[in-house]
Design a protein around this nucleic acid. Structure first.
Lengths: 349, 349
DNA sequence: GTGAAAGCGCTAACAC
DNA sequence: GTGTTAGCGCTTTCAC
């Protein structure tokens, strides 16, 4: 009995509406799509019946006959990471404005998932796919992936929140150079010269660029480069921040300011500092990237770089929505960031 | 020129494959769906051509002709909240096992969004929709929403990660009573009797149940009930935990243990305690719910209740996948939790 | 202004 | 085994 619950009531279709209204399916379709060429009274009549049944046309049939589905695919590294989650929700809001929905897949940074999910998006005939995290973060683009993206983008526009050498996809990217400028100018203006950066890998483009800029700025401000403050690679998590900071203490190379490669790493470093009986920011200043919720949950609160997620998302979605026509949108758009100064940074003592 | 990029190459179809293989479309379809009744050599021949073009059948057309889309809709309050994000990714993993994708919509807890998104899911002909957070968390179910869900569930099975009185949807729910048991038994065994619970509202079923159980356990262990330790309602964020704790200090009613309604609130309370120069857990123990990442980022680390997200997600998805047939699955499945003890709780002094 | 009919790309009877 | 045919539920010419 219960097993029949969903099969008994046949879905209402455009023909049912048409019959009840005494018109043809085409007319109903015209009302549905707000197409012109329907007399006002007839339009109202049909609309009333539509409302009466709260009828919603089958999006599959619609997508089959039209070419637009009003769905954008988004392949993201891991929505559990607040940076991605924030961006995703911002994308959803932006998409809603355009009348689009989002089909999300988490790749967990695994190439095989990304490949499979690209196929899946193609199969689902999404109108465009946005790639965030994973392969598009690589400094050296993976050739297998490049090939796949090129194949897919013959049919569905691919938008990159990153880069992928060997493709000509539209891109929207955070200006990593500028983020480092913000932090370094802040720290240097506070008198810091012993600045360490913790976590991240050079094979990740953004991290690589940040370290490059870090070095460049040191030399610009004639601050001596200290290898032990920079060759402190590692993951993008709390543990890495904690461990790398611990190593600096162990080596006796204690900086006056620490930059975490993201907020998690920064918080790890901060806790390590506090556990060593030092104060933040009186003894050591700490900064992070991403401006996630956690910045307001530490004591002191964490100074961090905010990427302006709304603008980022808006540009990604706009690029996806407009990917078909010649929109005049530049192939690469950069997102400028801003520093949110909180209690974790202060003047060098 | 560029504007033509996506329209020039017509999508390859099953007929193109058929023609090249010198067979009919049905045969290709049979190969695609792994249906029996195709000679082995022919199957291989077709498969080769499919592979050659990395052909993927149009999921819309497939969904139109079949009744299954292999897509589950999920309407969630806010994936930026780590609790939801964790559950979502777990659902995604479970869904992948069954060959399903997830269509996510964030309602942000707004009734109007939830209503609209339900329609959208129906329109997209998802095979089932899972509701997490928002209206299904309400103690008193919203009648308008109940009506909507009942209407929708005539056509597509709705699974609730919560409750909705007046519907007969399958449900999977965290056993809120048991979560409170875990915490209270832990605290009481450590000698605590002055226990406050901070944040949450009684109109949220889980919060209501937690407070009810809290009172019940106090009386069971013959611990006097103190209104000021329990009527400490508020949001599910850091600020609430901080502010409510501050009020306890101001009122001079300082407990020996504090339960945050979730990890955020617990961390807020913890920081407030530390700022008052007290120690955690020596002076005051702190516990949270959700066992999110942040538990490992505080100092000391936060003791918290873990819901076993994988099991939770697995049951939700299984219910969604099997929602059509009579699966023998019980209408309500409860998720049992476990306490992850970390440094924030200790014996009363 | 309105309806009939074709077609989107697939699956599933049904013949052969 | 394999092909033919008829839908699935829409949109969209094209007549009228």
């Amino acid at each position: 009995m219960d097993a029949l619950r969903f099969s008994e009531e046949r879905k209402i279709t455009i023909y049912d509406i048409a019959k009840e209204a005494g018109v043809s399916a085409s007319t109903v379709s015209r009302v549905l799509t707000n197409a012109p060429g329907v007399r006002k009274d007839k339009r109202e009549l049909v609309q009333n019946i539509i409302d009466k049944y709260s009828f919603r046309p089958n999006a599959l049939a619609k997508g089959l006959s039209e070419t637009k589905r009003q769905v954008i695919g988004i392949i993201m590294a891991d929505v559990r990471n607040p940076y991605y989650a924030g961006l995703f929700v911002a994308c959803e809001q932006a998409a809603r404005k355009y009348g689009y929905s989002l089909l999300l897949e988490n790749s967990l940074g695994l190439l095989e998932n990304e490949m499979e999910q690209l196929s899946l998006m193609e199969e689902q005939r999404v109108d465009a796919v946005i790639l965030v995290g994973g392969r598009v973060d690589d400094l050296n683009s993976n050739t297998v992936f490049v090939e796949k993206v090129n194949q897919v983008s013959n049919f569905v526009p691919v938008i990159l929140a990153g880069k992928l050498d060997g493709t000509s996809c539209s891109r929207v990217q955070i200006n990593a150079i500028q983020t480092m400028d913000l932090i370094m100018e802040h720290l240097i203006s506070l008198g810091h010269t012993e600045i360490a950066i913790l976590g991240g890998y050079d094979h990740v483009a953004a991290s690589f660029e940040k370290r490059q800029r870090y070095k460049q700025l040191l030399s610009r401000y004639q601050i001596p480069y200290r290898k032990e403050f920079c060759e402190t690679y590692g993951g993008y998590d709390y543990e890495t921040g904690y461990l790398r900071m611990n190593e600096l203490f162990a080596a006796g190379s204690v900086p006056t300011a620490v930059i975490g490669i993201n907020d998690y790493a920064a918080v790890g470093a901060m806790n390590c500092i506090l556990e060593h009986g030092l104060r933040v920011p009186e003894d050591i200043s700490v900064v992070g990237f991403d401006n996630t919720d956690i910045c307001n949950m530490t004591n002191p609160r964490l100074t961090s770089v905010d990427y302006h997620y709304e603008a980022f998302a808006e540009k990604l979605v706009a690029a996806a929505v407009n990917a078909h026509g010649d929109t005049g949108l530049p192939a690469l758009q950069l997102i400028e960031s801003q520093l949110v100064v909180r209690g974790s940074t202060g003047p060098v003592k």
